[in-house]
């Protein structure tokens, strides 16, 4: 427990299109410890997704101004790395799963091709080796017929299946950090549990720290170790999950809790 998997300090995101508008994310900082599941909760529009995209370096400079004191991945600051070095980390040391499984995968490439191209890109695997490993990954995320899934195109799979393909892709290089941005919001309830079980099981197995972005406190109660509450681009409360539910400090947290008392019970 010496150094965290991911350390963020003073991360700020502003729109360059509306210079006068308040920052979408302002001066937030947190540590994601090795192997833990840290939940980031808050109402929609509070800046959770922008936080994730800023950490991943996905916000185009023409539209967004991102400043950070530090974005440390395993003790190395990546906030000043050149683009080529950043690319080597993305999908390799740090991965991301998106909210919309229906549109997150490229429709014109087979699922297997998409997963194995990440392996080939980062691990330099040969075609056959990447293929075998991809099929193993697909098996790991619970597909009984990984060969068929490998050949399938995204539109031939259900939302839950696509999200599992995403998980296979995200975990294929055994990243230190995984950011899961509302991974189950678009799925129905039974699929939600299945997908989150797979995700957290693999995370534990590989020692991957997970930043789980959600607005569902039921999910937080069930899967997370710690939780951060975000309001208007600021983190207002950080706590162990048990403590948060027992003694919410911030009024905003209490309000969030009141929406989901059913799920908590």
């Amino acid at each position: 427990m010496n150094q965290p998997a991911l350390r963020i300090s003073k991360l700020t995101v502003k729109s360059t299109l509306e210079p006068g508008a308040p920052a979408i994310v302002s001066e937030i900082g947190f540590d994601l410890r090795k192997g833990e599941i840290l939940a980031l909760v808050g109402e929609s529009g509070c800046g959770k997704t922008k936080t994730a995209e800023a950490i991943m370096g996905l916000l185009p400079a023409s539209h967004w101004q991102v400043t950070a004191g530090a974005i440390e991945l395993n003790g190395t600051d990546c906030s000043d790395l050149p683009p080529a070095s950043l690319r080597k980390l993305r999908g390799n040391e740090i991965s991301m799963i998106f909210q919309e499984p229906l549109t997150a995968l490229d429709p014109v490439f087979s699922c297997g091709h998409q997963v194995s191209s990440v392996l080939r890109r980062h691990l330099g695997s040969a075609r056959n080796e990447a293929r075998d490993r991809t099929i193993k990954m697909l098996q790991q995320v619970g597909f009984a017929d990984p060969e068929r899934i490998f050949r399938s195109y995204p539109h031939q799979l259900s939302g839950g299946m696509r999200q599992r393909v995403m998980i296979a892709m995200a975990m294929s290089c055994r990243p230190a950090v995984l950011i899961a941005d509302e991974p189950t919001t678009a799925l129905d309830v039974t699929t939600q549990a299945q997908v989150l079980d797979q995700l957290t099981k693999l995370g534990r197995e590989y020692g991957t720290a997970i930043l789980l972005i959600t607005h569902d406190l039921g999910v937080v109660a069930q899967y997370a170790d710690r939780v951060m509450v975000m309001l208007d681009g600021v983190i207002v409360e950080t706590a162990e999950v048990e403590n948060l539910f027992k003694q919410p400090q911030h009024p905003c947290t209490r309000q969030l809790l009141s929406y989901t008392t059913g799920a908590v019970a």
């Binding site: 995209e53 996905l58 991965s95 991301m96 998106f98 490229d106 980062h122 892709m169």
Partner: peptide, 25 residues
């Protein structure tokens, strides 16, 4: 499109994105 963001999140270079993902789509 969303899947372009995915490709970037998984380390694809601008060239790869343009020549493979954008062009093929």
């Amino acid at each position: 499109k969303d899947h372009i963001r995915t490709a970037r999140a998984y380390g694809a270079s601008t060239m790869t994105i343009l020549w493979r993902h954008v062009l093929k789509n």
